[in-house]
């Protein structure tokens, strides 16, 4: 795999006036305002999983980090670390999938870099993406804005991505294999920006349990959720039962947890459910003054238990 070949591949798919000029830096003319910027590295194994691949994931992951801050994603850079001997055909599929995912949301890939390392020094391909998006001036999402009685919404059943990767890594032999929910959330949650949203998060590593615990700690409030209101994906539920696990600690890559005022909660739900990615959206609980910093779950039986911050490795390298 020569450097030149790789670069030609990127230009072939990602081409746009900014990238095509091939300068040392991308030159952007940005309008005044507030900009959100984020960066993330992707090392998922396997590189191809049911429902996506590392390319799609690396673009969606960064779009989603921008979108949950209320930003409209506009520009992306990407950096590849490729293991010597990695299949060029596979790389092309990955690049194609990055391209189509980015273009769908009007995102321009403006800069990139490639390094090829000796065999054994990386596992196939690693991708780092950095995203830049503009945030409307009235938006200031933060857990500290959470108020008692605000509602907690999850836009999709928990755990689909984590389970998909787990099944693929462990040859669970389930047919059809569980699909990742890997998707860009921008078009799903952008319409909520006109409502009284306090903050949003995408439950990736550590899943719903990690996100709720982080929100509770950062917002210094308690969160009380009702297990029976959490949407379920039947495949995920079945396999989780079999493995003796709960889906709340497994990652999503196409879901958001949204804290919204009680007043706007139903409206938010209605908007979400009108979108293909949000059909199973549900209000699962609320913010409370009790138990600040903790998450309390009312179980199916009506008993209560603390939902812990996940700890320990459940599934390595899912994103």
């Amino acid at each position: 795999m020569t450097q030149q070949l790789v670069e030609e591949l990127f230009i072939k798919y990602f081409h746009n006036p900014i990238l095509d000029s091939q300068l040392d830096s991308a030159m952007l003319s940005l309008k005044a305002g507030r900009w959100a910027m984020t960066t993330d590295s992707f090392v998922v194994k396997p590189v191809f999983f049911p429902g996506g691949d590392i390319g799609k994931l690396s673009v969606c992951g960064t779009i989603n980090d921008l979108a949950v801050m209320g930003a409209a994603p506009l520009y992306l850079t990407c950096s590849f670390i490729i293991e010597e001997g990695f299949d060029i055909g596979d790389l092309e599929i990955i690049v194609q999938s990055m391209n189509s995912t980015a273009r769908k949301d009007g995102l321009t890939i403006v800069a990139g870099d490639t390094k090829v390392v000796e065999r054994g020094y990386c596992d196939g391909v690693y991708i780092t993406t950095t995203g830049l998006g503009i945030v409307p001036n009235w938006i200031n999402y933060s857990p500290s804005a959470m108020q008692v009685e605000d509602r907690v919404i999850i836009t999709a059943p928990p755990g689909a991505h984590g389970l998909s990767v787990f099944a693929a890594r462990n040859n669970l032999g389930v047919d059809p294999p569980p699909q990742s929910d890997c998707a860009s959330l921008f078009s799903l949650i952008e319409p909520l920006n006109s409502l009284e949203v306090r903050c949003m998060r995408d439950p990736t590593r550590g899943g719903l349990a990690a996100v709720l615990n982080e929100l509770a700690v950062k917002g210094k409030k308690g969160i009380k959720i009702d297990e029976s209101l959490i949407p379920i994906d039947s495949t995920v539920a079945y396999l989780m039962e079999l493995l003796g696990l709960e889906p709340y600690q497994l990652a999503n890559e196409g879901a958001a947890v949204i804290i919204v005022s009680k007043k706007d909660a139903e409206r938010a739900l209605e908007i979400l459910r009108g979108h293909p990615l949000g059909r199973k959206a549900s209000i699962i609980g609320k913010i409370t003054a009790e138990i600040p910093g903790q998450v309390l779950m009312v179980t199916y039986l009506g008993t209560e238990r603390i939902m812990q911050m996940p700890s320990g490795v459940i599934i390595p390298r899912i994103c």
Binding site: G244, R305, I306, Q308, G312
Partner: peptide, 22 residues
């Protein structure tokens, strides 16, 4: 984990740690 009861998903320490009741 120090002991196996915390490692295993069926261990009583893991159960108490992961699913505490207030």
């Amino acid at each position: 984990p120090v002991g196996p009861c915390m490692v295993s998903s069926e261990g009583s320490c893991a159960a108490s740690y992961n699913y505490p009741s207030r």
